[in-house]
Design a protein around this nucleic acid. Sequence first.
DNA 1: TAGAATGCGGAGCGATGCTCCGGATATAAC
DNA 2: GTTATATCCGGAGCATCGCTCCGCATTCTA
Lengths: 204, 204
Amino acid sequence: MTAESPATPRGRRADAERNRERILDAARTVVGEQGTQASLRDVARRADVGLGTLYRHFPTREDLLETLLRERFDGLATRAADLGRTLEPAAALTEWLSGFIVSTGGYRGLAGSLMATLNDPDSPLHASCVAMRQAAGDLLGRAQEAGRIRPDIDGTDLFTLVNALGWIADQAPSEAGRGARLFTVFMDGLAVAPGATAPGPAAP
Amino acid sequence: MTAESPATPRGRRADAERNRERILDAARTVVGEQGTQASLRDVARRADVGLGTLYRHFPTREDLLETLLRERFDGLATRAADLGRTLEPAAALTEWLSGFIVSTGGYRGLAGSLMATLNDPDSPLHASCVAMRQAAGDLLGRAQEAGRIRPDIDGTDLFTLVNALGWIADQAPSEAGRGARLFTVFMDGLAVAPGATAPGPAAP
DNA sequence: TAGAATGCGGAGCGATGCTCCGGATATAAC
DNA sequence: GTTATATCCGGAGCATCGCTCCGCATTCTA
């Protein structure tokens, strides 16, 4: 029982820290190229690191993604607060949604990952997703109170819609114009009062 | 050179035809359970057929999907024509889109496959996708001429949007209500005149 | 410098998509 | 019924994937 105090009680080893950064750098590149479903072997290869090392640092693909995206997501959360303070409610919402799409646009398949994560409390990305939905929900609530956005949707609806827009951007990355156009369709759908959908008889 | 006339010149062998049907039956089940990305080994196992047999009949996953869905898709195309003849343009469009979502809702991941296929002329599903977009485009054009749908979108936009709705349905299959709600948001976005998006300064 | 905690790397498992070919089988001709 | 052959079947095999596990190297503390 002489092993009361370990040799390295706290503070990671320097090489471990170095490898962690190498892996993150590689992951940024590979995920940027292949999307959310990138081969983790490719990441390890590119980082010049064994596969076991990668899994030691990031036991789950979601752990890796979470680290890659946390910064971006935190930025989006604070941006929501800023916009809510400086812009008129509807404009703040539009602006934030647009920023969300730009921020998440780099990684193909991310929209699906975010939606899957939203319903899985065990995922490391779950907290970020909830925070995101919360931010969207706050801006949405203000805009609804201001009478600028239809009242019959909630934060989860909005989060789902904006992710659907991200999904659209994934499908045809070459045609950026379409994404922008469909964004306005979607915003107009949020703006009108509910009930307009019922086709009713043709007005003569 | 006595082999002038082959033993079985035309008409498939009976066992081949039988296996083809077994594979299709199995595929319906397995794809229904696992979605578009189902394991083809599972399909072969369930059909009690060798893997080579499956690949002989359907060299590509898309070949299999195409056979599974052709009937449905043909039905959607004719339904578009029928609706165009019997209903007021906007109502016809709404009805058809709703039917499209119901028809494609059974298979998870189908929305993504359809979008990918739309840009790949070599895919066996490509023809069906184009036909689908065409059908949607025709109904859209009529509704636009009638002044019921915003004029700044085209058939591909519409096809993309409806597939995005299908994607949404994939994400949270448990909450059917959300899909319906977002469908109305989306239809309202189609109905309003363009330009309403610009937030403008807050009205005092 | 010595000891031990810590981290590294890749072999290995089960699964996947897809190819390929020896052998079984159904059909047509006799 | 017999035979011949076109046709088809089945699964072994290759490459890749996600993920685990453990012997060995490295780094830090004392």
